[in-house]
Design a protein around this nucleic acid. Structure first.
Lengths: 207, 207
DNA sequence: GTCTATAACGAGATAGAC
DNA sequence: GTCTATCTCGTTATAGAC
């Protein structure tokens, strides 16, 4: 079927669709699902609201797509993490930190707060995100403990959930005080409880 | 000034004002500040939106009053907690749990998620809540550690912030899965890290 | 795939009678 | 202190031309 073929290097995803999702995600992470509108996206992208509805008929549909995309990307980022168990966890925390320093919340932490107002398809997609996150964490916690690189007692599932709760909560609070360092401090505490040593204090200008 | 006196037992706060705040708080804890409207409150209380505006000219003003009231009540509840250091912390956690089992978020945890969309007076009031909460926690953590009833290393301030982050985050996640037990499990982990022993497993019907 | 135009509704808020 | 009536604006969504 040669009629449908494109040059091998061409982007697969329609450009507009991608830009919509990108902008919508930023708005959602900054202001929440109920805190932005089609008009906001349209203004930034300089297209009309009607065009947006062509790509995503309803806002619920857009929201579901946002969570699905976020989950896929996050999952890919997780699978790309490597190093010692301690370093993997450090890099895991860094993923959250990178979001926070751009003045954003974790998309799914934000949506979790709005849970009771979300359409059902978004709720389901949201739980999938946390389930996958949790599964990845449990796996690496257990491997780390088995290897003697991590120290903690009891259920790895509970530990994974405490980590997620602690990190999402710390993001929430750091944002309310506009002090990203609050997140870092709490994250270090959580890691320390797993036996991941704190980094040596960074001396000024030593990069 | 006898003209202004009322019978000693009469309620001080106008009844309607109180009912508005009560209903608004419930709505805010369930759906967030951006998730309810004057129309919602009016419908439940069977008064008109115009009447609501008489008591709270703007929604921002209502929101600020909600946080101030919540802070005062929470503070009073904290000061009323007593017992051993371990039991005080257990009862502290129970305060959160009591909110969650009524399908609500902590009002201020909810507002923290919406922080970037909140009017400035609400933001300030919100930080006051967390500051007071933190001060109370630090005080009791330090007393407990000094008395040998709690065990943890390092900064009490950091520990207080980790506790708050963990509890708020755990509420968020428990709500998204509609499984309050998730909150309890994470809370127990956090307490265990402080040296507060887990309760013996409750046997069925021995309540 | 993007547009203009508009529908249909709900939001926060105000004026002024009672 | 509560009401009716109304205003203005923003929201999601649709119809139909290009």
């Amino acid at each position: 079927m040669p009629m449908k073929e494109r040059p091998a290097m061409a982007p697969k995803v329609p450009e507009t669709l991608e830009r919509i999702l990108e902008e919508a995600q930023q708005l959602a992470q900054e202001r929440g699902f109920n805190g932005f509108s089609y008009a906001d996206i349209a203004a930034t992208l300089k297209i009309t609201k009607a065009s947006l509805h062509y790509h995503f008929a309803t806002k619920a549909e857009l929201g579901r797509a946002l969570v699905a995309r976020y989950t896929a990307r996050f999952q890919a980022a997780l699978e790309a993490l490597d190093g010692t168990p301690a370093n993997i966890l450090r890099r895991y925390v860094k993923l959250y930190e990178d979001v926070l320093v751009r003045d954003r919340m974790c998309l799914c932490g934000m949506f979790a707060a709005e849970y009771s107002t979300l359409p059902a398809p978004m709720r389901n997609e949201l739980r999938r995100f946390f389930d996958k996150n949790e599964a990845w964490l449990v796996r690496h916690l257990e491997e780390g403990r088995a290897a003697g690189a991590l120290q903690y007692e009891g259920s790895s599932l509970e530990m994974a959930r405490m980590l997620t709760a602690g990190l999402e909560g710390a993001m929430l609070l750091a944002r309310s005080f506009e002090e990203p360092e609050r997140f870092t401090a709490t994250a270090e505490r959580l890691l320390a409880d797993l036996g991941v040593p704190r980094p040596r204090k960074r001396s000024i200008g030593s990069g």
